[in-house]
Amino acid sequence: MNFFINVTLNGISSGMIFAAMALALVLIYRATRIVNFAQGAMGMFTSFVAYSLLQQKVGYWEAFAAALAIGMVLGVVVERIFIRPLHGKAELNPVIVTIGLLIVFEGIAGTIWGSTNRGFSPPFSQTGLRVGRTSIAFSHFDLFIVASVIILMAVMLVLFRFTRAGLRMRAAAFAPETARLLGVRVGRVLTLGWALAAVAGSLAGLLVAPTTAFGPLYMDFYLVYGFTAAVVGGLDSPVGALVGGLITGLGVSYVGGYLGSSLEPLGALALLMVVLMARPEGIFARTAARRV
């Protein structure tokens, strides 16, 4: 029973990270119908910037804020320079470009910081909290993960529901031509979407960094998990991203806990296949058809 609880807690904490990653993918997918394969690598890159700042004795929170801000700028730059010119071209082109960017970012990070794995020091203790006399598999850092992703989701929700920028973003995502006819500058709105997605991706990167061998490739599996979560949730629903993240996190954690941790990626792929076969539009999807 104890083991089950611990595996569940572990699943919730990693599920929240998957949710952040999935949210990043969803924000871009629903506005542009592009799956950004470079999302994980972008988060990796900004986390390395945070790592460098931490090495320079900059405080964690300053480095944290800087990574999110740089992530935002990176999202804008990627959209403007690499994605925008492909608008109206074959659908596959931007997808190939994001795969190219994945390789480029990992290559640049390897060149700057080397490809050996390092340790990224966490802002909070990673030893399990104590409940009574037993220690559970949930630390202050896990608490930080859950809280920061909830805050991220809440901020996005408020932004989308209650601000003019959010209304413009929703309109542009659902009906780009109608939005333009109403004066929405869809190009700007798409850029904003990439910026917000990059913030979510950077947050995921920062949250994963202390829990893993920190090197240029550390986000690769998280891209797969985040993608699984996004598909489970329907690829175009932020709420779906959260639920999909939790389902994927729990699924992967149970597979790892009961069948062995080397099977975790396979567990995610199995989940992906089951969802695609049983309910290809995902749990929260609005549209029935999907091209990726």
Binding site: R164, R168, R170, A171, F174, L182
Partner: peptide, 15 residues
């Protein structure tokens, strides 16, 4: 825009 409410559609027009 079906995914928006009536009022949101109108707000969009007035932006």
């Amino acid at each position: 825009i079906e995914e928006l409410t009536v009022e949101e559609n109108l707000r969009l027009g007035s932006l």
